[in-house]
Amino acid sequence: MSLLQVKNLRVEFPTRRGTLVALDDVSFEIAPGEVLGVVGESGAGKSMTGAAIIGLLEPPGRIASGEILLEGRRIDNLPYEKMRRIRGREIGTIFQDPLTTLNPLYTIGRQLVETITTHLPVGPGEAREKAIGWLELVGIPAARERIDSYPHEFSGGMRQRVVIALALCAEPKLIVADEPTTALDVSIQAQVIAMLKTLAREKGTAMMLVTHDMGVIAETADRVAVMYAGRISEIGPVRQLVRHARHPYSQGLMGSIPPLDRRVERLQQIDGAMPRLSAIPRGCAFNPRCPRVFDRCLVERPELMDAGTTRASCWLYAEGAPA
């Protein structure tokens, strides 16, 4: 059975000028221990999906319809207090900027211990030992001495390791990692991702890895979901999606990665920009930018459908598409 199931999730933002649909009909699953990469441009709804899963959408955003199930139980409609017990304990979260996600006024040890004692039946002493263990696991040197340090006494990369320890310390089954390396130096990114990947594999933790770094996806994810304008445009195994993307948008994304094994004169780029949420075109949201657009794309909105090795929401893979 899937660990996480997201079914037809729709997130709306009521505004003065009408309702904005931030996520529309988003469905996917994550199996235990699996890493699902979620990619897309800024504003495509990647982080929003993560926020919806942990039940921390920014008001006035709300889940308008759809279901989120964790191990078969619905979690999208739980009361705050029940959902609180799931956050941290069952679903851990890693945020983007380690410089702002740690409370500057408390030692990292205190923040770890409070997280552990909130979720696990251990006393403060044992929690402290566990905390030291986690700091060692995420690669903080001299963890025993450094546990009583404040966040500002660590570098950015070290702080992100602390954030990862905080996300993992109650041993959740799923980690929602929202751009965990975007704010780090490039030289540190690979180390942190490798560490995160190793830990997740060792602990059997599944991960939803939100990023716009295709390199990170190719290296880390088992499957990839490509998002565009609040919808999933393609989802499939990482190898197929990177090498043989089916949706024209995914093809464009993959084409913008510089290949190392051959020379290219120009990187492919996708013309135009993603539409604003208030002005999503009729039919397929990608149609104004799509190089292979045809009449059906302008009228009907495509659902995810089989496109060979992946599933894509593109009319090219429906019956009767132009060759």
Binding site: I54, L56, R84, R85, I86, R87, G88, R89, G92, T93, F95, D97, T100, T101, L102, N103, P104, E114, T115, T118, H119, V163, L166, A167, A170
Partner: peptide, 17 residues
């Protein structure tokens, strides 16, 4: 509104804390 409060929520800390 700060990130560390959001992160504290994401860690499942009780509101009181």
């Amino acid at each position: 509104r700060t990130d560390y409060i959001k992160f504290a929520r994401a860690r499942g800390l009780p509101n009181r804390a």
